[in-house]
Design a protein around this nucleic acid. Structure first.
Lengths: 352, 352
DNA sequence: CTGAAAGCGCTTACAG
DNA sequence: CTGAAAGCGCTTACAG
């Protein structure tokens, strides 16, 4: 069987406790003893058993990531933000995909039994009952939610500013001379749709433009709905000269619909999306879009969670991260000639 | 503190062993006793402590996924294939990102100490030393590699058929009448590049076409290299009428370069990529590409690993999955008019 | 600076 | 069908 502390102790001629002290780098051991123990450890190839340690300390050095079951680079970036931070602090990340509220409740329950030290929740924020989350928080296991809405402020949260960035996008279009700016929104059961719609309206208002309902069509964040919404918008008289689209998938669909209808982007219609997905820099023309701080959100969520686990005081339980506009070709303005030939501008993505 | 079996036993007036039997659904308990225990469990809100169980059984019900640190939907799909299978069998998945061989070796070591029951390796297959993997296998912990090359056949492996599918892609172009078919390849330190290049050459050979070196340019799987390689190919006299590109990122770059040079796709130049990334169905024209069975590879890897963990006999240690060609617009042939308006054809992707 | 003992919460032969 | 005891591999007060 595996080598245990007992074996090491026997070989080094010391007690188990002393071995434990050496393994855990505690100071109260004489140099001479420490070296003898270290040698025994190496000779025997001893590796501490983390499971046994966990049983006593009550800590598993594991955090759970509950993540929406969606095939988008988006969530992957949050995940990629979390993992290095966890790893750096010697925490493992357990993955749990959730597709609905029932799943989420089950995931929280499983992770509780798994004795994880904390949970990061990165599932979709629907207009839903959050009682299972609050119940979980009552167990005392720290939890941080990424981009969830409707949780009270006692729950750790990382949120990015969908509304303000949407306003910025609209104002950018206004500055480029647009007056008839349409909006293709997301599904109304998603909080992000509401935020982006509010941001759109605020942008028009700040520019002194009238918000007209005929220029607002809601899709479902999927490609076909963006395509069809665009065709509808193009039939309005007068048609919009710019479209602010609530996510990049629909924005790319919008781009295709405009082009296939014989119009040019950005000359006839300017387009701005949301999300800065990988593919948004690969379209022709390249897509102007709101860059959401996904990786940073992941990083901050992990840091906040670890602080909670270690009982460090939190400066704030609700962090709002700014988003920014990535200006490319689809909205007009300056041409970015070097974009397609330059690694830095394209981002260093390395698919297999 | 937490409720333990001891508490349940006391309340139900039975021994700990009997509680254990009920919790683990063992049969040798009278109905009457079982019910009494069940009531006590509910009354006290008892949850078994998996850590304690693991210490005895030596099983953690956890598998590790070592995955390349790359921002591509590609790997996400493998991950999404693995997790449900693991979950269904009550296994957790621990994530470990690796960016190089040293990382990989470290990851294997950490996971070994973590006492995971098995490992799935989905990192990049470079022309590298695999001794750390073989060392790990010697510990007796099951391991399955996804798309790794150069491992001996005793190691569980899931591989997709890059070479055959590349040949098919070329033959598809030949059938459409193309004779001057160029290739933009991947970096030569990646095994996939070699496979796809071999497939390309075999396709030409099977069609009775001469393979000309001037029509082969190697990129690095990134956008700019695909863009520049395409510009070079277009300057050749006579230029190719079709280009088989070793991944979708470079294929989309190729598409942009052809279009921005004033030529049309597929009329002047036909393009086929590899990977069927999300964005490949969002370009104009949509991209014909090789659909690699990523999710299935994940699923199969998880199943193979669980079989190994449970000491079930494996029908085969090396599974080769077929890949297929997803025909869209960029290669000519039939127009797919309904594509952009139809959910089924676009695939149901739901970004936030 | 070092050690003997108790115990984390569970399972596993072994008896009855 | 049920139970008392040992033990998984470690840490943690408590003594010396």
């Amino acid at each position: 069987m595996a080598v245990t502390m007992k074996d090491v102790a026997a070989r080094a001629g010391v007690s188990i406790k002393t071995v434990s002290r050496v393994v855990n780098n505690q100071s109260e051991v004489s140099d001479e003893t420490r070296q003898r123990v270290q040698r025994a450890i190496e000779d025997l190839g001893y590796k501490p058993n983390f499971v046994a340690r966990s049983l006593i300390t009550g800590k598993t050095n594991t955090i759970a990531l509950l993540v929406a079951e969606i095939e988008t680079p988006f969530l992957l970036r949050v995940q990629r933000g979390i993992e290095p931070v966890a790893r750096e602090h010697n925490y493992n990340v357990i993955l749990f995909s959730v597709s609905d509220t029932a799943d989420e409740a089950k995931g929280l329950e499983v992770m509780r039994q798994q004795r994880v030290d904390g949970v990061i929740l990165n599932s979709i924020s629907l207009q839903q009952d959050n009682s299972h989350i609050l119940d979980f928080c009552r167990t005392g296991i720290p939890l941080v939610a990424v981009n969830r809405y409707g949780l009270d402020d006692s729950v750790g949260q990382i949120i990015w500013d969908d509304e303000t960035s949407s306003t910025e996008a609209v104002l950018h279009l206004v500055r480029l001379g647009h007056r008839r700016i349409a909006h293709i929104g997301g599904p109304m059961d998603r909080h992000s749709s509401h935020c982006r719609l509010r941001g759109y309206k605020r942008g028009l208002e700040q520019a002194g433009l009238l918000c007209q309902n005929k220029y607002i069509i809601h899709g479902d964040y999927l490609y076909p709905s963006g395509y069809n919404a665009t065709l509808s918008l193009l039939r309005i008289d007068p048609p919009p000269t710019a479209i602010f689209v609530a996510n990049d998938v629909m924005a790319v669909a919008c781009l295709a619909a405009v082009q296939r209808s014989g119009r040019r982007v950005p000359d006839d219609i300017a387009i701005i999306g949301v999300g800065d997905e990988i593919f948004s820099r690969y379209t022709t023309p390249t897509l102007t879009t709101i860059l959401l701080p996904t990786a940073e959100a992941g990083r901050r969520a992990a840091e906040m969670l670890l602080a909670q686990i270690n009982d460090e005081p939190l400066p704030e339980t609700k962090v709002i991260l700014p988003a920014s506009l990535t200006v490319r070709e689809s909205c007009g303005g300056q041409p970015l000639d070097a974009l397609w030939r330059n690694s830095a501008a394209c981002g260093a993505t390395v698919p297999l």
